[in-house]
Amino acid sequence: MKKSWWKIVGVMLVGYSMVGGIIFEVPRLAIVNETIRALYFHVPMWFCMVFMFFISLVYSIKYLRNPTLNFDSKAVEFANTGIIFGLLGIVTGMIWANYTWGSPWHGDPKQNGAAITLLVYLAYSILRQSLPNPDQRARLSGVYNIFAFTTMIPMIFIIPRLSSSMHPGSGGNPGFNMYDLDYQMRMVFYPAVIGWILLGIWVATLRVRIKSADMKIINIEYEKNR
């Protein structure tokens, strides 16, 4: 647990957002009512997912410039953590949609974009599992990762802005402009985003460490048997 101050900060921020997100006052809006509080928990999942995929992209580019398997294991584990956050975002969104829109899947541009993004990243995972050679796997999936990230950008940031949607905050903008004005919601929402990103990095680094420990053990075994 060396250099772990940022882990503590992440835990504190998410804990604060969980207490504040339920107790603090929120704007009284029709249709959403109390479910407006889902913003504190559902939206940070997407921010966190995009952040994890971005770190994964950075390590993939690093690997392609300087082929070290260490970069590759960071790229894959950050992508995996991003997929987990994306799934949590989709499931929480579906629970909310079931109550507010009447059915879990509405074919809303945001829902479809998020689903396509997740499928693209699941394909990344499948691509990796289908290649037995570690260097080939790292190189090909590194290239694929760049395409996956560039596919995500129109799916999440551009298409929902071009089409109309029932998603809260929509009507030209897929953000949360309607709540964005509320000062008290911002005081919980931004700490929640930062906290969840820090927790996501924590989980991803744990996975990276397990992976590199595993690789070292395999190396030791290999040296022994030689």
């Binding site: 647990m1 835990v11 998410v14 804990g15 969980m18 744990l206």
Partner: peptide, 24 residues
């Protein structure tokens, strides 16, 4: 409700903490 959420959250974080130590 807040108490229940916090207990679950603290439990999960404790699990992460011990996992971190074990990996170290």
């Amino acid at each position: 409700v807040v108490a229940i959420i916090m207990v679950i959250f603290i439990g999960l974080i404790a699990m992460l903490y011990y996992l971190d130590k074990k990996i170290s």
